[in-house]
Design a protein around this nucleic acid. Sequence first.
DNA 1: TTTTGCATTAACCAAATGGTTAAACTAATA
DNA 2: TATTAGTTTAACCATTTGGTTAATGCAAAA
Lengths: 203, 203
Amino acid sequence: MKLSDVNTEERILEAAKTVFMKYGLYGARMQDIADTAGINKALLHYYFRNKEKLFDHVFDGALSKYFQQMEVFSDKSLPLIERINRYIDQMIDFLTEYPQMSIFIIKEISTNPDLFHDKVHKIKNHKSTSLIAVLKESIELKEIPEIDPVIFLMNLHSLCAYPFIASPIFKVIIEKSKTTWSDPYHEKHKQSVKDFVAFKLSN
Amino acid sequence: MKLSDVNTEERILEAAKTVFMKYGLYGARMQDIADTAGINKALLHYYFRNKEKLFDHVFDGALSKYFQQMEVFSDKSLPLIERINRYIDQMIDFLTEYPQMSIFIIKEISTNPDLFHDKVHKIKNHKSTSLIAVLKESIELKEIPEIDPVIFLMNLHSLCAYPFIASPIFKVIIEKSKTTWSDPYHEKHKQSVKDFVAFKLSN
DNA sequence: TTTTGCATTAACCAAATGGTTAAACTAATA
DNA sequence: TATTAGTTTAACCATTTGGTTAATGCAAAA
């Protein structure tokens, strides 16, 4: 086995990630991925039998990283609000690093919902305690007000993820009314979500 | 001119809307649109020179309808909170009717941000008073707390639109913890956003 | 009825694209 | 050095796809 083995596969996956994230499954071109990786197109098919196999690798990786962010909900050593606040920090940091992630996942899922169903189930089984269950428990223990856990989860995700998804729209809407959407807003964004959580969960 | 003229063009646009919304510019197939409209593929190019022209028609229509929802912000005859609450009702009703709308617009914009910039500018000029400006004014008049208008606008949009965008994800996450995401949640969703607004804008 | 001009279609084309093949290269191994 | 087995490539193939063309249909005008 040559040393370049790992290297080539790595480079392919990195290139695939970039191209798939930008154009999606349909829009991505194998030639584009090959060029980005600096290799021959046939070599793609040598390492990954076909486009779908390659896509699956990228997509699974993205999906698993995405859901990985939610594991903090299960950390029983922390108070509920603290868990959620950490999730907010983590998730927003994560999305700052991979701003295309949400839109990429959603794009593919909305185009092909069937395929998605199985994949999430496999991942979901790893972390047994979901936020919904945790919330229900806390409500029963009267630790938090009687909110609807599903609505709350939805609102929480919305506040975290949507700004990254819709940033091209916001950039235009906001226009010159403020400077670039960058660092200062990053923290303000986090805080606004935390405020929302505090508002919803305080007695 | 035959009567069927208008009819055919209508049917093409309707079909194009359906197919483009589902697959996006890249993924949509002219043959698919033709089949959906029940006509020959060549007829598409007779009415709309090429794919992009046809897409533009659909996209422009979608974009204009989308931004049209925000016109209520300019209605000076209503108190600010009332305007925003109406916007929430309108927007969520609108997205309930066209659940693919947000993801469609965002998908295309994120793939092709340049083209988008001009289009919004044309539309934006029509409604002079944006929510940001209105908020700034109200803050100066001490009618509402000193919130960051951009953050607020972002949060508001997030809460309204994201649930529709991410509904495939939520459907899986929620799973059997609740029944289908439908009518009862529709109103609950609206109310949760209104609660957020009340929380943010009340002194 | 004949003509005219738009509407519609079947057949076709060129380019793009995912994928294959057979040959060439390369570095260990015998 | 010769062999072997994995790696990489150029050339090629079949299919898909946006788009064209030339012929046909058809309703109103002449």
